[in-house]
Simulated scan of single mutants.
Amino acid sequence: MTPTLGRFENTFNVDLENELVRHLKDLDNRFLPVNKKEFLTLAYDLAEHFKLQHQFSKTKKTAGNKFYCGFINRHPEFSLRSAQSTNLQRAQGFNKKQVEAFFEKLENLMEKYSFSPSRIFNCDETGVSVVHSNALKVLS
């Protein structure tokens, strides 16, 4: 038997936590970062889905602040940052480098999921906000 410090263990094993990290980075790369509340709800849902023993709040259906602090300590590449407003993103994002990156990602997704161009839809974004308010911090 090997001794352990403290009476609590991590909710997620290394593989599952690495999958959570990969998912957060994937969302961030798609310009859809999550805020702290969404992250804690995601962690709770993941633990419930895999029926893991956890200390998360079943009434609030979220992980706690201690889980969040431990996660950030284990993964210092993440931090809370202010979301940029839509107009600033559009002004900075519409340049040759960003457009090329967009089409490269589109091409990779088309190859990965084998969908035809007829499955790509142009939607009116009026009333649909994909950017968090400036007062809200996101994990990035």
Rank of each mutant, 00 (worst) to 15 (best):
V138P: 00
N35V: 09
R22C: 09
D124V: 04
H49R: 15
K61G: 02
E104K: 12
C123K: 12
S140A: 07
N29R: 15
D124S: 05
E107I: 09
L109K: 13
P3W: 10
N18W: 05
N18Y: 05
L109N: 15
L16K: 09
A91M: 08
L5V: 15
Q92T: 12
F103I: 09
T2P: 02
Q98L: 03
K58E: 10
K66L: 14
F94S: 11
F39L: 12
N10R: 13
N13V: 10
N87G: 03
K112I: 10
N13I: 05
E19F: 01
G127D: 01
K37H: 11
E125K: 08
D45Y: 01
I72M: 08
V34K: 13
L88M: 07
L46A: 08
F8S: 10
A63H: 00
R30W: 03
F12R: 05
F121N: 14
G93L: 06
Q53F: 12
Q89Y: 02
L46H: 01
S118F: 00
L52C: 06
S133G: 09
N95M: 07
D124L: 02
I120N: 01
P3Q: 14
S140L: 01
K137P: 00
D26F: 14
L16F: 04
F103A: 07
T86Y: 02
S129P: 00
V99Q: 09
A91R: 10
G70A: 06
L106N: 13
A83E: 09
F102C: 12
A101F: 03
V14T: 15
P33I: 04
D26L: 15
A47N: 03
G6P: 04
K105L: 10
N73Y: 03
N35W: 04
E9C: 05
K60H: 01
F102T: 10
F56K: 05
E125H: 03
F39G: 08
F56T: 06
N122K: 11
Q98S: 12
H23W: 01
V131S: 04
L40V: 04
F102M: 13
P33K: 00
F56A: 08
D124A: 08
K105M: 15
E104R: 12
V21I: 11
K25E: 13
R119Y: 00
T4S: 10
T126W: 00
V130T: 14
K25Q: 11
F39P: 05
A47V: 00
F67S: 01
I120L: 06
Q53L: 07
L46T: 11
T4M: 11
T62Y: 01
V131G: 00
T41I: 15
K25I: 06
E77N: 07
A43S: 06
G70W: 03
T62P: 00
E111V: 11
G70Q: 13
K51T: 04
P117S: 06
Q92L: 13
Y68K: 06
L27M: 05
N134Q: 13
L106Y: 11
K105W: 01
H54V: 10
L40I: 05
T59Q: 10
G6R: 11
H54Q: 08
S133C: 12
H132Y: 04
E100R: 12
P3V: 14
L136T: 07
D26H: 13
F103S: 06
K137A: 07
L32A: 12
A91H: 05
Y113L: 09
T126E: 08
S116Y: 00
H23F: 03
L106V: 11
K36F: 02
V21F: 05
S116P: 00
E17W: 07
S116F: 01
